[in-house]
Design a protein around this nucleic acid. Sequence first.
DNA 1: ATAATTTTCATACGTATGTATTAATAGCGC
DNA 2: GCGCTATTAATACATACGTATGAAAATTAT
Lengths: 234, 234
Amino acid sequence: MKRSKVRGPADAHATTSRLLDTAERLFGKHGYDGIGMRALALKARVNLGAATYHYGSKKALYIEAFMRRFRPSNAEQLRLLRQAQAHGRALSVDEVVDCMARPAYAMGVAHPSFSALLARNLIAPPVFMHAALQREVGVTVQEYVGALHRCLPGVPEEPLRARVMFAMGSVMMFCANIARLPPMRRRVPLEPVFQELARFVVAGLQAPPAGTAVPRVDAVARRRAAALSSAPLP
Amino acid sequence: MKRSKVRGPADAHATTSRLLDTAERLFGKHGYDGIGMRALALKARVNLGAATYHYGSKKALYIEAFMRRFRPSNAEQLRLLRQAQAHGRALSVDEVVDCMARPAYAMGVAHPSFSALLARNLIAPPVFMHAALQREVGVTVQEYVGALHRCLPGVPEEPLRARVMFAMGSVMMFCANIARLPPMRRRVPLEPVFQELARFVVAGLQAPPAGTAVPRVDAVARRRAAALSSAPLP
DNA sequence: ATAATTTTCATACGTATGTATTAATAGCGC
DNA sequence: GCGCTATTAATACATACGTATGAAAATTAT
């Protein structure tokens, strides 16, 4: 119906990549359960049967759509860090952060809809992804905590692990909003925003370790905030 | 089956709050589309009809489950900030951050499963929530950007807006992992982790504004990262 | 050219979904 | 006792879901 002359595997893998691209976009927007195979196949202009033929199941399609960009991006994170450390010289926090955030950033600029899928998977993933994500992200975090521990000897490992988590939160918030960000819509370079992200994360990681007290608003305000917990609707 | 003697509205509103609690927990874990009304009613030990009787629709239930804690938490954020500013004295970044993060933290300690729902809604919300969230979060962000602009005159407003977004990312990552965090599982106070979060965010917001270049790894690494975008699976 | 293989397509199956309906009961205020 | 609201229960309905099947078509291999 759509093709002008004939139908068939003339386009070979074109249908699978159209399907993957559509899956990336719609899974990123609506989540795994938020979109069905029929809607997916329709938007990708692919037959429903072809979808299960190529990927076997919806879960497999989701995993493939996510992993095809996540795997290399993750691998690049580790490669950059290890390469930077290979020279034996001490790394600055800036360098570590750049290794950590730039692959995700580059991927996000080239494939904005992947960023939404990435953020979703790191913050609100479908349950069947938990194990695989834990495995993949775990080693990356571990390695970055180690690298940071070397250039931030003043910060103990446990707080540092928390800080790396917070840093990932900032990066993921950036990723989740890439498509909505003004620069992306006005075809203006996104790099300045990324550099702002890098500055934010670097400063956060370098924050004065514990000891330094964080002043609160005042006692009564703190009490009210605590009271909020028990009385949801005062 | 469960009640020993009789069934009926003896428990009055107990059924609606059981339903809300269950909805909060399961929507937070699986997302809006990830759990059905039947499973929800079953887990809440509530009749399916009662669910639609009280809330009319699944969407309405979702919105109520989210809003009952989000609204007061959000309101408390604004109240704390305005109260702190009312005295006319200049605010420190620490104070602003505390106003911003403590209500979400307090809510998360008292109701850990709400935190997951919150993070989900701020990073990967169902589409029908977009408008309401934009409205509610918009004014909060605006107000905090204004307050920070006053105590960080060196940072222009646009980068500051980005930084507030990054800060929210850190807070949301904290929220998304509250239940999984070691302190929460070992009944040990969570406050130190929150203070670490506050330190991270404060330092991030106070980062040296633009001008200061963020050094990259090196040229070849940057080129490889860029190449990643076009060739997903090398 | 013919056979083998891969890909597309339409359709079907069983189940699950959100919502609506109806009747029956139980508590509460008057 | 009598309404009124809350709750359970049992279905019902139309639609949507993921997946399976089998024939047709196109491509590739021989």
